[in-house]
């Protein structure tokens, strides 16, 4: 009988000691932090250089040959979880499909980057520039002219129309990358 009580008491003591130690460690940790000084980078005074892939302001980039990359395929607007992208595609005289108008409502945008991921032509890209708040809500609505830039952004090489196989001013049938000359249906030669 007695040993059990002793063991029980010792066990209880152990628990109490554990509690005391846990409390001590907790308070010690917070106290230690009190004297460690803050890690905060104070934003407007100090602007940390952001990595190229950080997600903020959206742009529409251009091909290496300087033409608009966007083909207005509607994938970015489809994938956008907040429906902030809208556009209308059209056919240019050169045969290229392009965005007749393209609008991003940055008042809604959550900078999730899904549009960039969905873009098959590397046209829509997010940039590190994030200081784009405005006092007028309508100024948050960016039109194509506000979004279009004349550089390639992060993807320096891709040129969709070099591969697409559709006829544009720059390439006809069989003139794209890895394409054979058009088939002559009227010959029976093998």
């Amino acid at each position: 009988m007695q040993p059990i009580i002793v063991i029980g008491f010792l066990n209880n003591m152990k628990v109490l000691i554990e509690i005391a130690y846990a409390l001590y460690m907790g308070f010690y940790t917070t106290l230690k932090n009190l004297f460690r000084g803050p890690f905060t980078e104070e934003y407007p005074e100090y602007k940390r250089p952001l990595p190229a892939r950080s997600r903020a302001q959206i742009i529409l980039t251009s091909d290496p040959d300087g033409q608009e990359r966007c083909v207005a395929c509607y994938l970015c607007s489809a994938v956008c979880p907040v429906d902030c992208i809208s556009m209308q595609a059209a056919e240019a005289d050169s045969g290229r499909r392009y965005a007749k108008w393209f609008r991003i409502n940055f008042g809604r945008c959550i900078f999730c980057g899904l549009c960039e991921e969905a873009c098959p032509t590397s046209a829509i890209q997010l940039t590190p520039f994030f200081e784009n708040s405005k006092r007028d809500i309508l100024k948050m609505v960016y039109e194509k002219a506000d979004l279009q830039v004349d550089h390639c952004g992060k993807d320096k090489n891709y040129n969709f129309y070099a591969y697409a196989g559709i006829v544009t001013k720059s390439a006809g049938k069989g003139e794209h990358v890895k394409e054979e000359k058009p088939v002559d249906v009227r010959t029976n030669m093998p």
Binding site: V167, K173, V183
Partner: peptide
């Protein structure tokens, strides 16, 4: 890895766009 076959498209009128590729 080979090349892709291509065709020349036809004008089929104002209602239908042809892209035989």
């Amino acid at each position: 890895k080979g090349k892709k076959r291509t065709y020349v498209d036809q004008y089929l009128g104002p209602l239908i766009q042809h892209e035989e590729n």
